[in-house]
Design a binder for these strands. Structure first.
Lengths: 253, 253
DNA sequence: CGGCGCCCTTGATGTGCATCAAGGGTCTTG
DNA sequence: CAAGACCCTTGATGCACATCAAGGGCGCCG
């Protein structure tokens, strides 16, 4: 049961640009860059979006080493962000869903250091960074929102550090599932039943675990009745129980 | 009109504010907020710094839950940043040295989520965030630099995630030492001989290891001649060797 | 439709780091 | 100077997760 992205279903089978790119009527407005802005300012943000870009499953939106030009707002679909170290390690550092901003890593040096790969056929709005900077000098609300987004990214990564640095495998997986659940709900999807877009290996990479461990932990959650899982189809049966596993000693969330 | 202050050492033995706080003649200029800015803009940044604040060893600069008002630039000394989870876990998420900016976590929700504690008697420049936002709407160079700093923070945390997610204990400790070495050198200190300001436990917390493991790994590095370590005094004897341990398979960096 | 490739699951075994434990060095303070 | 509080080191043991290995489900494509 796929929920359509837009209530006003713009079925433009042709090249999707201009008209379809309307922050004003995008239902991600509340999650994305224009969050909490006046209708007037939303219009101006809208003008920043120069293009919409489709990225097929498995293709990359940006690659490490490429020059940084634009930020991207995920319009539909989802992505994984990966970092490859000199010595050949390759780690997933996050998953991006609709309304989230990609490319912030490029600002510091004007070169991307992160690879971003689509987990399914996806679509993004491109926002040239120089124009965003200009506009946020004029629109205080945009500036504020952009700063919030960057800060949120920082805070989120701190959370990931805690997860990687001090949680046990079950806590990590539970935390991951709870987080996914919240994010789906925030987007109007079911919080208790969803489809994993990533493989066990990608989850493991993100959580600092091996794919077998992810699989085993999920099977255990299944056995104990916390969730039901069949391949990539997840049903959360006991949300509170899962949250307990995610942060123990906190009696009931 | 404060052009002449430069080399005229204003030795105000009294309360150190105003005059002493001069980005213009601060030797951290190249590492801090005014990086790469015109002398004129540096003056304007300087005007943002409302106060200098001393923090004694063990005291906190900011605490989770406090309202967010200001960013802080470390002027001297050093800090650890910690995050405490609901369930009582407490993890060190970073160490801040002179010239680095603290408080970015507060921007997203206007409440700090991170505790920042001085590792030694330290001093910071306080920068009210609302004024920074105002100013960066007017000064493009400041805006750019501030964005760079936030992005750098994001990139740095991605690095920490790789460390925590996929490195073995020896790699983590070696990476940590190499990173410290670089940061000391950037500040004009010796890159090969320095004093650890944090305990083994704090290092361990940051690296996702137990203090005993940190101690053991360092002892091993000592035995193999990579470093010399005596309590908190570190000498790096074989910088290349240490880098090899930090990222193996990269022949000689 | 049948074969192949990818992904997932599950069991057996191994190991890196945690945990438990003891003791020593160094700084602080009365 | 002596007592106590930290912090660090080092050894012995245990365990959580990695690794190795085998097989099954499902979708893709010739």
């Amino acid at each position: 049961m796929q929920v359509t992205i837009d209530s006003t279903r713009l079925s433009d089978s042709s090249c999707a640009t201009k008209d379809a790119v309307r922050c004003t009527n995008c239902n991600l407005r509340e999650l994305c860059l224009p969050q909490d802005m006046t209708p007037d300012d939303v219009q101006r943000v809208n003008a920043l979006v120069t293009a919409r870009r489709r990225v097929k499953k498995g293709e990359s939106l940006q690659r490490a080493g490429e020059p940084f030009k634009s930020l991207y707002a995920v319009r539909s679909g989802s992505f994984k962000t990966c970092i490859a170290t000199e010595d050949g390690r390759n780690q997933v550092t996050g998953f991006k869903m609709s309304g989230e901003i990609i490319g912030l890593d490029g600002i510091s040096t004007n070169v991307h250091i992160i690879d971003v790969i689509a987990l399914e056929d996806s679509e993004v709005c491109a926002i040239p960074f120089s124009r965003l900077e200009e506009a946020s000098r004029e629109i205080a609300g945009l500036q504020k929102q952009f700063h919030r987004i960057m800060s949120r990214e920082i805070v989120g990564e701190q959370g990931a550090m805690v997860l990687l640095g001090s949680m046990r495998a079950e806590e990590r997986v539970a935390t991951f599932l709870v987080s996914l659940s919240r994010r789906f709900r925030a987007r109007g999807y079911s919080a208790t039943e969803f489809h994993l877009r990533m493989t066990r290996e990608e989850i493991g990479s993100y959580l600092g675990l091996k794919l077998e461990t992810v699989s085993r932990v999920m099977s255990r959650f299944h056995e104990t009745g916390l969730i039901s899982i069949n391949q990539k189809h997840v049903v959360i049966l006991d949300a509170d129980g899962l949250k307990d596993v995610a942060s123990p000693s906190t009696a009931g969330n």
